[in-house]
Structure formats: structure tokens, C-alpha cells
């Protein structure tokens, strides 16, 4: 699987090298992340409406291998500083992801909401969890990606740009992550 994904990423990078418009250049990204801002692929984040400064930081970290995920490291490798800005700005203007159609079990939604309130996620991520500046939009992000990311911040396998999320996750129990992700993904 690794080989296929790496090759796919490489093929996409090569294909994009000669493309002209931003729409053409970003097409390989959206093949996985979703053409309309909403990802349909497991553990792959939706990008629509993402805060441009946050995306810029992530693309920079992928390019510099400060954040490790090989397909993304390969994709970001040839990008210039200006490219990073161009892609981030474009992504910010794509439609934001929509909550899943099912409303969610009331009990789990309540637990998730209580956790979001308790841990003051809105302090940085905004009251509607749409993010601001370098703090990402998390509202209606894919549930699997949210859970994976929170777990990675918790065990420090994903090192943030700064230490904020490690700090926030320290007192949160691993068992609470699933409820957080469930709720944030379905937030209306």
C-alpha cells in the first residue's frame, strides 16, 4: 500500500509540474482531499474553508519534513514559498465541509459537547470551531481524521508547529477522544 501511494503521489507531482492554472495544479491534491472541499477518503482531511495561515504552516511542515506523512512530503517537496501561499489561499476559498446527514446519537453528542466546553476548544478554534489564523477549522472535519489527529497530539507522535495541542491534550483521557471527534464531525 505504501508503495502504491508513494508512486501515486510521485506521478501526481510530475503531472502537476507543467500545469498552468492553480485549478490544474491543485487537482491532484483534491483527488484525495475532495474536489468540493469535503474528503471521501478514510483518514484524509477535508480541506474546504480551512484557515489559510494554518494550511500554509502544514504545507511548510510537510515540505521541510517537520510533519511526516510520505505522500504529503513528496507532494510538498517541489513547492516554492509562493506555491505554498497560492495553495493555502485557494483552499481557504473552497466550500467548507458539511456535517454528516445523520444527526448523531444524542447521548454521544452531549458527551462530546460537554468535552468541547470543558476543555474550552472554542478558546482558540472559535465559538463555531471554524478556526482563526493559524488555528484550524475543525467543525465537520472527518471523524476518523479528527480522532487520529487528537490521539497523535496526545501521544506526541504528531508534533505540532507549537506546543499548544500537546498542552491541551495532556489532561484529556484517550477514551474521551472518540466522543470529541464524533461531536465535532457532526456539529451543526
Amino acid at each position: 500500500m505504501r508503495k502504491t501511494m508513494t508512486m501515486l503521489a510521485f506521478a501526481l507531482v510530475v503531472a502537476s509540474a507543467n500545469a498552468e492554472t492553480i485549478e490544474q495544479r491543485i487537482a491532484p491534491c483534491l483527488a484525495c482531499h475532495g474536489e468540493k472541499g469535503q474528503s471521501e477518503i478514510e483518514n484524509t482531511p477535508s480541506l474546504g474553508g480551512q484557515q489559510a495561515p494554518y494550511t500554509l504552516i502544514q504545507l511548510f511542515m510537510f515540505r521541510e519534513k517537520l510533519r511526516t506523512f510520505e505522500p504529503m512530503n513528496e507532494m510538498a517537496k517541489p513547492l516554492t514559498d509562493d506555491d505554498l501561499r497560492l495553495f493555502s489561499d485557494f483552499i481557504a476559498k473552497m466550500p467548507k465541509p458539511a456535517p454528516s446527514e445523520e444527526a448523531g446519537e444524542p447521548a454521544r453528542m452531549q458527551r462530546g459537547q460537554a468535552l468541547v466546553q470543558q476543555h474550552r476548544c472554542d478558546t482558540c478554534h472559535n465559538l463555531d470551531l471554524s478556526g482563526k489564523e493559524n488555528v484550524p477549522r475543525i467543525a465537520n472535519q472527518r471523524e476518523d481524521y479528527l480522532a487520529k489527529t487528537l490521539a497523535e497530539y496526545k501521544d506526541n507522535s504528531r508534533r505540532g508547529y507549537d506546543a499548544s495541542m500537546a498542552d491541551v491534550m495532556a489532561p484529556i483521557a484517550p477514551g474521551q477522544i472518540a466522543d470529541l471527534a464524533y461531536y465535532i464531525a457532526r456539529l451543526r
Binding site: 500554509l56 504552516i57 511548510f60 511542515m61 482558540c124 465559538l127 489564523e133
Partner: peptide
Amino acid sequence: AAKLAPNAPPPI
């Protein structure tokens, strides 16, 4: 208070 969060610098 809700407006306050650490300011991360631009990466570039």
C-alpha cells in the same frame, strides 16, 4: 477572553 490565543509566527 475568547479572542485570545497564542500567536504562531508565519513559517516562511
